[in-house]
Design a protein around this nucleic acid. Structure first.
Lengths: 177, 177
DNA sequence: CGACTAAGTGGACACCTGTCCGTTTGGACG
DNA sequence: CGTCCAAACGGACAGGTGTCCACTTAGTCG
C-alpha cells in the first residue's frame, strides 16, 4: 500500500473512533470531512459503514472472541455461554458501537474476515455444551446469532439492562438440552 | 376530511400496495411519483414509511390479531402460541411486507394505534399459558416481540423456512415453564 | 533525474427519508 | 353566487449512504 494511503487510512480510523465514541450514529460524511478526505477516499478504504465499524472495534471484537476459550477453561459449557452472553450484553450497554460491529461482522459481512472467527467462537461454546449433553444438539452458531439479535436493537425502554438479562435467560433456557 | 384529500389517500394506498407487492423495498419517492402526488402529500397522509406499511397491511394485521382467540379456542395455550408463531412466519415468508408492518407496528410505533392490539393479542396467548402453568410467568408480550425479532430480518440463507421453524421451536422451548 | 503509470483522491451524482413552507383550492357561510 | 381561509398540496431542501470517474501523485524504472 502506498504511504499516503496508509496515512489516510489511519487518520480516518482515528477520527472515526473519536466520532463514533461521541455518537455511535455519526455520519460517514462528517467523518470524511473531519478527517479531511473526500467521501470517495473514505469509501475506498472502508467500502461500507459496517466495514468501518468493524475496523474501529476490531480490538473489542478480538477480545470477545479470545474470551471464549478462557471462559470454557474456567466454567462448565452452559455457564461459559451464559457469561459470554453477559459480556456481549455489557458491550452493547456500554458502547453500542461494539454491538453494531458484532452485528455488522455477522450479518452483512458474510464474506468478510470477521464472520468466520465469531461463528467459530460461538461454535466452540456450543460444541462444548453438546459434548457435555447440556445444550441442544440441533442448534448452530448462526441460530444463536439470530436469537440474540435483540442485543443490537437500539431502542428498548428504560430498564434496558434488566430486560436484556431476562431475555438472555429465556434464550439460554431454549438452548438447553 | 376534504374530498380531494380522501381521494389522494386512497390513490396513494392503492399505488403503494402494488409497489410494495412488487418490491417490499419500494421507495416512498417512487410511490409518490407513481401516485401523481408530491412527497409532501404522501408524508402528510403517512408520516413515515412505517405508517404507510401499517396502512397497506392493515387487513393482514387484523387477521393476525383476530386469529388469537380462535386459536385459543381450538388448542391448548402452548399449541396455540406455536401455531400463531407459525402463522407469523408464514406471512414473513410469503409477503415480507406484512412482517415489516408487524415490526413497524410494534417497534417505532409505540404511540400508534397498532401497538396496543398486537401486544394485547400476544398477552392473551401468554396469559392462557401462564394460567395453564405451561408457560413461564415472567415473560411479557414485549419480550416475545424481541425474541422473534429474527422474523423481520430480510437476509437468511436459502433454507429460510426450515431455519425459521427451527428458531421458533427454540424460542418456544425457552418460553415453557 | 525525468517520465510514466497504476494506485489513490475527492467531489459530483444518484437516490433515499423526512421536513418545511409558499401556493392552491374545496367547500362552508353570508 | 362571491368571499374567504384552513386544509391540502407539491416541490425544494437538508442531510444520509454509497457509486463513479476525471484528475493527481507516489514511487519505480530506464
Amino acid at each position: 500500500m502506498r504511504a499516503d494511503a496508509e496515512q489516510n487510512r489511519e487518520r480516518i480510523l482515528e477520527v472515526a473512533r473519536a466520532a463514533l465514541k461521541a455518537s455511535s450514529a455519526a455520519s460517514l460524511q462528517s467523518i470524511a470531512k473531519a478527517a479531511g478526505v473526500g467521501q470517495g477516499t473514505l469509501y475506498r478504504h472502508f467500502p461500507s459503514r459496517e466495514a468501518l465499524l468493524i475496523a474501529v472495534y476490531r480490538h473489542d471484537l478480538d477480545e470477545l472472541i479470545d474470551a471464549v476459550p478462557v471462559l470454557l477453561g474456567e466454567h462448565a459449557p452452559e455457564e461459559a455461554l451464559r457469561r459470554w452472553f453477559e459480556r456481549l450484553a455489557a458491550y452493547g450497554r456500554i458502547k453500542h458501537g461494539v454491538a453494531q460491529a458484532v452485528e455488522a461482522a455477522t450479518r452483512a459481512d458474510l464474506s468478510g474476515e470477521y464472520y468466520e472467527p465469531v461463528v467459530k467462537a460461538i461454535t466452540l461454546l456450543l460444541d462444548a455444551g453438546k459434548a457435555a449433553g447440556t445444550l441442544r444438539a440441533d442448534v448452530d452458531a448462526e441460530d444463536v446469532l439470530q436469537l440474540v439479535g435483540f442485543l443490537w436493537r437500539t431502542d428498548f425502554g428504560a430498564d434496558r439492562e434488566a430486560r436484556t438479562r431476562h431475555l438472555l435467560s429465556v434464550v439460554l433456557d431454549g438452548l438447553k438440552a
